[in-house]
Simulated scan of single mutants.
Amino acid sequence: MDVYGLKNCDSCRKAMKELQAAGHAPVLHDVRDTALPEAILDAALARFGADLLNTRSTTWRGLSEAERGGAPRALLQAHPALMKRPLVVSGDEMSLGWKADAQATWLGSAS
């Protein structure tokens, strides 16, 4: 199980802790240190589209209007911290964020 996010992100840390407590063996990949693999980025964009972008982040607020109008793929490649977090991937299963729906997917019930 792979968790893509930021090591200092509260949601990512919470997800890691809860996944470990549920018996999973998640591995956190900090997208600032290592780019999101192309295959994962493609699958995430196909599944979540523009929702993959965190438009509430300080990174987003720092972008110009012209930059914000760019393609999600290009924005995420140029600014990895723009990705909504965490992106949890295990086999063909994938979830974005750490709200009730993602928790239900990985923990069996909303926590």
Rank of each mutant, 00 (worst) to 15 (best):
P86N: 01
L6C: 05
L76N: 04
L19F: 10
G69D: 04
G108F: 05
M83D: 09
G5R: 02
V3Q: 04
C9V: 07
D10Q: 01
T58H: 10
S11V: 05
L87Y: 13
D101E: 15
A22K: 14
C12E: 00
D51P: 00
H29G: 02
D30C: 04
A81G: 10
Q20Y: 05
T34N: 03
L6H: 05
L63M: 10
C12P: 01
L96Y: 10
A100E: 12
L6Y: 12
D30I: 05
S64F: 09
S109F: 08
D33Q: 14
M83I: 07
G49K: 03
A100C: 13
G5N: 04
A104D: 03
L36W: 07
K84N: 14
A22D: 04
E93W: 11
N54Y: 05
D10E: 03
Q77H: 03
S109V: 07
T58N: 14
S109A: 15
R47T: 12
L107N: 00
I40Y: 06
R13E: 00
T105S: 08
A78M: 07
D51G: 00
E18H: 12
G49L: 06
A74V: 14
P26L: 10
H79G: 08
D33L: 14
P26C: 05
Q103K: 14
S109G: 09
A25C: 07
N54Q: 11
A44I: 00
K7F: 04
M1D: 03
G69W: 02
A22V: 09
V31W: 07
K14D: 02
L75A: 10
R56H: 11
T34F: 06
L96Q: 11
